[in-house]
Simulated scan of single mutants.
Amino acid sequence: MVRNTGLLAFACTAFVLTGCASGEGDKNSAGTANTSSIAGKEVAVDDVNLFDISVGDCLVDDIVTGSGDEVSGDQKKVDCAAPHYAEVYSNKVMTESTFPGLSVVEADSEKLCERAFADFVGMSFDESTLDISYMYPTSDSWISGDREILCLIADPAGDTEGSLRGVAR
């Protein structure tokens, strides 16, 4: 996944698609939900595959790892009432039959996420103190069937508790 300056952007890679495995990430060996201490609170955490993230999910960590260019592995999802780094607020499934090119995918992602931002937050992205990021397919992940753009919102001041829907800030 790729990160742009200002707007954070992530691109799914074929390595990520083949490298992610899902299983019973939300259960420990005793068969109970995993818990983690986040901002001094014990909260239930589900490990979800990167490609199983959907609108309404709240993620514990910044999903970019390593050099800032790739996302890999399972992600930690929590109830949005618990402290979290980002919330998925919009998505779009691309319908082109062939990969339209990285510049087209990036432009579509940015446009989608900025437009959806105002409806979700209650003010324009340019006026807001909040930050957005987006995940999108690359030519490699496209071959494996990846077509989804996901928009994420985060507060650069730190973790959020509760949804950022309608906060108008």
Rank of each mutant, 00 (worst) to 15 (best):
A82Y: 03
S37F: 09
L7N: 11
D61W: 13
A21S: 14
S67D: 15
A33E: 03
A86P: 00
A14L: 11
S72H: 10
S97R: 10
K92Q: 12
T35P: 00
V88E: 02
S109Q: 02
V104L: 04
K41P: 02
G66F: 11
A21C: 11
S22H: 14
E106I: 14
A21I: 11
C113T: 05
K76V: 03
S29Q: 00
I149V: 15
N4A: 08
H84I: 01
S103Q: 08
I63T: 09
S72K: 10
A11N: 03
G56A: 09
T95L: 08
S54M: 12
A82D: 07
R115C: 00
E127M: 09
C80K: 12
E24V: 15
S103H: 05
D131V: 05
A39H: 04
N91A: 15
G25R: 02
T98A: 14
S97E: 12
C20F: 13
G56N: 08
L59T: 02
V78Y: 04
V16M: 10
K111M: 00
D57S: 07
K111E: 07
S37N: 11
T95C: 07
V71Y: 04
Y134C: 00
G145H: 13
N91Y: 12
E114S: 08
G6Y: 10
D74C: 11
A44I: 10
A107Q: 08
G122S: 08
L112E: 03
M94K: 05
S144I: 12
E148Y: 06
I132S: 05
G23N: 13
S103N: 13
D69M: 11
L7S: 09
Q75I: 06
L130W: 10
I63V: 15
I132E: 03
K111C: 00
T13G: 06
E70I: 15
A44F: 05
E24F: 13
N28G: 10
Q75P: 01
D46M: 11
L7V: 14
Y85I: 04
A44V: 14
Q75R: 07
G40M: 00
F125R: 12
F99G: 05
E110A: 02
N49W: 07
K27L: 15
C20K: 10
F15K: 09
T129V: 09
S139N: 05
L102S: 05
A9C: 05
A30N: 00
C12M: 07
N28S: 09
A21R: 13
S37P: 01
V105M: 01
S67Y: 15
A82I: 09
E127Q: 15
S144M: 14
G23K: 14
E96H: 14
A44T: 13
A82H: 05
G66I: 05
N28A: 09
C58Q: 02
V43L: 12
F125G: 00
R115L: 07
D47P: 00
A39S: 11
F125Q: 07
G56Q: 07
T95F: 07
C20W: 12
R115W: 04
E42Y: 06
V93L: 08
S124L: 08
A21M: 10
V64E: 03
D52S: 13
S90A: 15
